[in-house]
Design a protein around this nucleic acid. Sequence first.
RNA 1: GCCGACUUAGCUCAGUGGUAGAGCAUCCGCUUCACACGCGGGGGGUCAGAAGUUCGAAUCUUCUAGUCGGCACCA
Length: 902
Amino acid sequence: MEIPKAYNPQEAESKHYDRWERIGCFKPEINENPAAPKYSVVIPPPNVTGSLHMGHALQHTLMDVLCRRKRMQGYRTLWLPGTDHAGISVQRKVVEQLRVEEGKTPQEIGREEFLKRAWAWKEKYGNEILLQMRREGASVDWTRFRFTMDESLSRAVREVFVRLYEEGWVYRGKRIVNWCPKDKTVLSDLEVREETDKNGKLYYLQYPIKDSNEKITVATTRPETMLGDTAVAVNPNDERYKHLVGKVVVLPLTGREIPVVADEYVDPEFGTGAVKVTPAHDPNDYEIGLRHNLPQLLVMNEDATMNKTAGTEFVGLDRFEARKKVVAKFEELGLLEKVEPHETPLPVCERCKTVIEPFLSEQWFVKMDEMRDLALNLMKNENSPRFIPENPHRKVYINWLENIKDWTVSRQLWWGHQIPAWYDKKGNVYVARTFEEAAEKAGTKELTQEEDVLDTWFSSALWAFSVFGWNGEVTETEDLRTFLPTDVLVTGRDIIFLWVSRMVMTTLKFVGKKPFEDVLVTGTVLGRDGKPMSKSRGNGVDPLEMFDKYGVDATRIYLAAIATGADIRWSDKLIETYRNFANKIWNASRFCLMNSNGAEVNSESLRLEDGASIADRWIISRLNKIAIKVNESLDKYEFHEAVSLLYHFFWHDFCDWYIEFVKDEISGGNDGSTDKQRVVRSRLLSVLEQSLRLLHPFMPFITEEIWQMLPGTSNKLHNPAYKSAEATIMLADYPKGNEELIDESAERQMQMIIELISKVRNIRAEMQIKPSDRVVVHIATASENRKVFEENQAQILKLARAEKLIFLETLANTPKASARAVTADAEIAVPLEGLIDFQKEIMRLENQLKKYQNEYERLRAQLENANFVEKAPVEKVEQARSQFAELEAKIKALRQNLEALK
RNA sequence: GCCGACUUAGCUCAGUGGUAGAGCAUCCGCUUCACACGCGGGGGGUCAGAAGUUCGAAUCUUCUAGUCGGCACCA
């Protein structure tokens, strides 16, 4: 068999995914066991405009690891994929396309035509991320793929909206909202990011009092809004201004006469203690306006240019231009008192970074108080969902719910779910599931539908159950019964409020179930500079480039290895480690295959016949121990722990020691197949095969590639739930590990051998003995240890590059010119006539002795401490005693060695 | 301002009461017939600082310093 010397990821990656899909591995229906427990995960739907980024790659890897393992364990497993329609993003792309390709605006082609273009855009470009998910190896059930604008999901949206309206939980009203002038739509609080404008300024503007020489100075960061001022407010208790309350101000530039009002909201300490009030452009001013019955003057258009209310001088100017002009005018008039630098908070649109304009407008809202209580009660009564890690997410989640505000759900877009509300000629509103229903309610067909669509997150909020077929008309499906609640939601912390909390609320309200048991909150993969990846910073790491460079499997297991819950910086060095690991797996397998010589994978060989060697008992013990621990780790979502266990086991136990131990017996000239050799070969293949199964959830491609090459693999190795499916490692039974095969005595004996070999290697290296020179090793040890060494003499000789082992009672009579060492179980001397530098050897031993003595002193102090002996657990005291005794022996031996040298 | 997290080897990070770990980097030696994406061997940390609890603290408590995050406020 020709097997390339280095692993080529691309080759394996291109081969297996389509086959897995064809066999039906991704579908829960492949499970033949009617009594199988279910395991389900629903994907956080990536946005159709998106392409795969590192956050997806991390989350998808974790979901895939969880699902692949459960599937191998025989669970009826479903990982359901989908995408969301990304209202603003798609709208923006289509508007842009229209502009570039046809030079038209959406208004020019009309809503219907625009939506056709949008669907076409989605069909053409919306699948990119799905192809990328296939590349990742994501074991999702494509036959259950959902899109938030699918007919059934859209029906669910309408149903929920109408029901909420009927219960009074949806209302329409005029409020100050977050307005994005670029996208020309309202945004919810959660879609706004608070930035800080370090170059912000505080402008002190003087407003003359009517019929007086007095002026009142207000401070503002947004001077252009003064054009819409309808009052000046002061604190009622502010002595400085008491005499002005009730007076009239002549607003400069406009000549408008506006009152000075007293309001508790004003903080006398800040600025001048006098506040200009612009009710249509500031949420606090809006409230003040309501309290004092002030007019609400909107001075801007939807694109944040000034409108005609702002005055002829300003109309059409952009708000920032207007700001300059207002300030210039004030200066001209001598009314600009001063300008101070002032760091100001700057709300920006999360997507396009445009500065948000607080804006008075009429919108649809969802009342959150009662919805919130559903989620809060679930947390308080059932501690659900369970956040992992619990800190800080549980607390932050509760805190946010307690302070939740109503949710602005309308968006001034065309792409999305058009709000199911109709207006008659008088402006009465009818909220209904369909036009017909609305017409019936209205008693007329002369209705026009609300132009606005719903926030994309409104449909995402229903994702947990709408994906299983719930749409109001259909409320019960087989999938809903089987898979809801799902087992875990894997997501980043940025959408806990935006999405997770809302799914909890809506699922409880409309299905009466919780949506999921656990919420696994992943850390953020930071750029190479330790900062969050972002386009503007240019520090992004593209997962697809990493797939090309290191392979998908290496990228996946790397991501799993850094998934500790904390944010972590991207490391090219570390991912390289896992590329090397893949190559190591490849080459170890290559070795096993090249020497299989007719042997096959065979589970009998994992159970150990009588007379199995120490190394055999040891590797089986390690394998079972690791399998148990890997399962425990994954049950606790400790991916990094599972990876590190597997990495260490495969590389250091299996490759460094086990393969080296059996190498001579099965390779090279040993072609004659004795029974013993057949068993060893088969065992080697079987341990490899078990390792591949354990690794498969992390590294699906390389493990399948090798598994298919291994002799003796077939669907007989499948979990019983998949006994008739085509053979694939994907359906192989995930090793549980068997406590009974853990053999502590074999582990101790192997440790003894390893330590002996290591000590000899250490001597060789330190004494600079050429690799080709064989040494003689004198060993003084107890007779039961001697037996262990003798049994493994061939391996010891080979791995220590020795020609002979000489067993003695003591080392008293070994040649003076020997390098010496002590292990926990033996003293050794390696005669080095002519090669040894006595001074150097004395130094070496003295260093060693010093280390032992430090440790010895520490233990002595501990054991002499009566408190320790009385209060510490017995086993700890015992442990200290035996370590103490061991050290005592080592020190004694080393001293004798030193004496012999002097 | 409130809440939280983090601070461990040169670097990136594991490690929640009992002798400090990994990978990378570094140093020494190897064309040993699976693998130089490799093999063998070394060096390197008073676990941010201080106090406390404990027989015993990287680990628990408190304080201090620094870094970061979330929320609130901001005329």
